[in-house]
Design a protein around this nucleic acid. Structure first.
Ligand SMILES: [Zn+2]
Ligand SMILES: [Zn+2]
Ligand SMILES: [Zn+2]
Ligand SMILES: [Zn+2]
Lengths: 142, 142
DNA sequence: GTTGACCTTAGAGTTGTCTCTAAGCTTATA
DNA sequence: TATAAGCTTAGAGACAACTCTAAGGTCAAC
């Protein structure tokens, strides 16, 4: 039976975070000591590790709550439910990647066009682009 | 001279958001009507458009505040200051992209390994991975 | 028997970017 | 002149995922 900071050290989360996860139903201590300390048994530790792994992958706490409820009673849930959660997450990741890629392109082009020198910014091409509503889609750099 | 909702319609932000930006020093109305309505002149509109363009690109409001202070007095700032802000943003974007790419890979591999069928999740490979601390780095899919 | 590390709780604060509400004044239209 | 649309303010609320605080109880070591 581990105390909270032992669990924390083991899975790499702070005790604060573990209590926070408990409040949100993700982690639980199946026992308490006489003085009220949380005590985690092997199953609790496994569950906490599941949560940590899922969080590392990038699942939201709400996703994790759903995955846990499936894990708790695998036989009354389908693989499809699991893949739905996973696929939704993948789509979300893909959307964000597309956004970031667009930003990356624009930022790179802005940097290509400004020398970044110490002279004053009176004719800075980056400021000009921002003043003119963005990169022209016609006309290209280089 | 535009009123706030006219400016809002013109640049594609809500009046709420414009007031919020004003509170944070990004947009300003250089005049007020007798009754206290905000009135935006051409320079105010240009500034608001600058803000909108920068936000579209993905700059944070704090970045934009810095860019604005350079824009306000270009001759006492250097191109380098502008490229520093831009480069920092690009690095941040690159970091986030790398994180998302890692997530993308893991999620894709999880989906490759589970058929997503309607049978029950007793032996679901995704849950197994989460139970076992993540994808093994040795051993590969396919 | 006292220090100091660890535990408890409820609840507030953080970050960033809005988003909305309430209560009341102004302006335009019919 | 009545009604509706639009404007004002201060301030609250939303979201995710923590992060920390206060005020106090517990436990091991010296
Ligand atoms: Zn299956
Ligand atoms: Zn420049
Ligand atoms: Zn330059
Ligand atoms: Zn499965």
């Amino acid at each position: 039976m581990l105390k909270i900071s032992e669990l924390a050290g083991r899975i790499g989360l702070s005790a604060h975070t573990i209590r926070f996860y408990e409040k949100h139903g993700l982690i639980e201590a199946s026992e308490r000591s006489e003085s009220g300390y949380r005590l985690y048994n092997a199953a609790d530790v496994n569950r906490a590790e599941f949560v940590k792994t899922a969080r590392n992958i990038g699942f939201s706490l709400e996703d994790i709550a759903q995955l846990l409820s499936i894990r708790l009673d695998r036989s009354s849930h389908s693989c499809q439910e699991v893949t739905d959660i996973t696929r939704n997450k993948l789509h979300e990741v893909n959307r964000k990647m597309a956004e970031l890629e667009a930003m990356q392109k624009v930022l790179s082009r802005l940097l290509d066009n400004c020398d970044g020198g110490l002279e004053n910014a009176t004719h800075c091409s980056i400021l000009e682009v921002l003043d003119n509503g963005g990169l022209a889609t016609t006309g290209r750099v280089n």
